[in-house]
């Protein structure tokens, strides 16, 4: 590991002032599960490393006025164990549940997962399906943007060197909504996502889909909303048959996203199974037949 100075601020203000001082060459670590490896392998160098994990104020899950607010330093374990997330935001719960290993879930934070913009992040896929907003702060002030706008493509984000991602929030799913996330991996644990699919559906009193937010992760460079699927679903009854009707669309979408990638043959087929699992979970949440046993 190359040399650097290390800072461990206890408050957000302190952290922001450190970032503005060192913004020319600074790395922020929360859990450190990604950055410490890069530092150790000398793939990443910085003159200053700011460890924000001691900022206790950034570790919370709260629901205020119908909005779910998650502090960026909440670990995957925090979220998995949070009763509200578990019972009401199943997509995010599942995304956290299937991250890496217990050790990584205990260290890794949702803020880090979002800010690192890794192709293989699980939670960004779920958060995009929840139409989440990220809060970025710097010594100069605060700005907010939709998480979709936060990603500017290919592993890049809108985060400036002197900014911290401090909070992620989204509208609390209502009684008429169900969410789900499915991760396809190559084994059962410690695995990088091959396909991640997150869905939020809303139904009206006639069981007609009134809103659909569908996001696929790990296929393109960053998670993508699938407007054609969403468009297909809205206005249709929420049934197994409806879902079966869009399986081939998923396949085509995946093919169109990565037509020349070696993995396309597998991904375009398996995405149908992933979609099936995801929609089954939705049906189950809505207590409709055809869902998981």
């Amino acid at each position: 590991m190359k040399e650097f100075s290390f800072f461990s601020p206890g408050t957000l203000d302190e952290a922001l002032s450190l970032l503005s001082q060192h913004k020319d060459s600074v790395s922020v670590i929360a859990g450190g599960t990604d950055i410490v490896l890069e530092l150790n392998e000398r793939a990443h160098t910085a003159q200053a490393v700011v460890d924000i994990s001691k900022i206790k104020d950034l570790r919370y899950v709260k629901v205020v006025d119908g909005v779910v607010r998650i502090g960026a330093l909440s670990t995957f374990t925090d979220l998995e164990n949070d009763p509200y997330i578990r019972d009401h935001v199943k997509s995010l719960y599942s995304a956290c549940y299937y991250v890496g290993s217990p050790q990584i879930r205990n260290l890794g934070t949702i803020g880090g997962n979002v800010a690192n913009a890794s192709v293989a992040g699980d939670t960004p896929t779920a958060l995009i399906s929840l139409d989440a907003t990220v809060v970025l702060r710097s010594a100069a002030g605060k700005r907010e943007m939709k998480i979709t706008d936060f990603y500017s493509g290919a592993g890049k984000t809108q985060l400036e060197k002197d900014e911290l991602l401090t909070e992620i929030y989204f509208d609390a799913p209502t009684e008429n909504m169900a969410t789900a996330y499915t991760k396809l991996g190559k084994r059962k644990a410690l695995v990088i996502v091959v396909i991640g699919l997150a869905v939020l559906l809303e139904r009206d009193c006639n069981n007609i889909c009134s809103k659909a937010q569908v996001v696929i992760g790990a296929v393109a460079r960053y998670p993508k909303r699938l407007p054609s699927i969403e468009h297909y679903l809205v206005g249709k009854p929420i049934t197994k048959e409806t879902f079966e009707g869009c399986r081939d669309m998923f396949s085509q979408i995946v093919y169109d996203m990565i037509p020349t990638r070696a993995s396309v043959g597998y991904k375009k087929e398996s995405v149908k199974g992933v979609a099936n699992k995801t929609f089954n979970s939705i049906l189950k949440d809505f207590s409709l037949s055809g869902g998981e046993e």
């Binding site: 461990s8 599960t33 410490v36 460890d51 290993s101």
Partner: peptide, 10 residues
């Protein structure tokens, strides 16, 4: 936690 992914200061 995995101690190989953590810096001493953490």
């Amino acid at each position: 936690v995995t101690s190989c992914t953590m810096l001493a200061g953490q």
